[in-house]
Amino acid sequence: MYSSQVNEYLSHFFEETDCSIIERHPHYITAQLTIDMDKRIMNRPYYWKYVESTNGVPCPAQLTCITHPEEVLEDVKGEIVRFGSYRLNQIFRVAQQLGAYVHLYEAVDDNQDQIFLTPFLGVNYKVSYYCDQTKEMLFSFGLNLMTGEVIEQFHEQIQELSFVSERPDAAFPLQYIIKPLRGIERLDELLYNIIQGDDHNWAEKAKQKWVRDQRVLDYFYNDVEDKPECYEIEKKALEERYAAKIKCEIINGGIFYLK
């Protein structure tokens, strides 16, 4: 993420989370945090405990994020926020918590006749392959909760649509047949099948490197009967480095009623 993207992202983030933006500038941004956001990102639990136990007046912080420190000439005090910085990672985490579950209706023109909306379960997965190197993949599935049909790259297809959170008057959402929780199981299974069918040469290679390095290590301690602690430490380090793992997590998902 480039600095200008970070700036834009922060601006959207604060808007969406009801933190009023006090100053917006291409190189920095100042926001008045809400109480909830202060608790989430300012790391001051004792302050909040104190305020709450004494019934004091809460005073959530203002936060200035400088996204282009090399460009800011005026005397702006704030935190340097860049891709990779602690603060931005924290904000990403909060965004993930606050944007994890949705329940939406596709917007329908009120003047139209009644329109049936089909329920879909949308789930976005991130799959990571780990050994001494990494590779990540995103899978976005949409499961038609009426027919069981699965649409791939679901998010890409719906991201431009406009959605509302309350049912539009003219819309008639169908009652789903497949239960959402059962739907997740189906999508999980589909994902596992895709993963199983993938080329796992990477894991094989890591295994070979592991075996080879283990042999080298054993050779060093060949004649030692009671192997010292550092042998075990090294052995463990090899495992951590080379053991192939596949991790799978759901980024977000929800119910979408589509035309």
């Binding site: 992202y9 969406e16 989370t17 993930q96 994890a100 976005n124 980024i251």
Partner: peptide, 16 residues
């Protein structure tokens, strides 16, 4: 439920 915009922002960050 959460907001659609934050949902999209969250997906976009992961994707980028």
């Amino acid at each position: 439920w959460d907001s659609w915009k934050l949902y999209k922002m969250c997906y976009d960050v992961v994707k980028t």
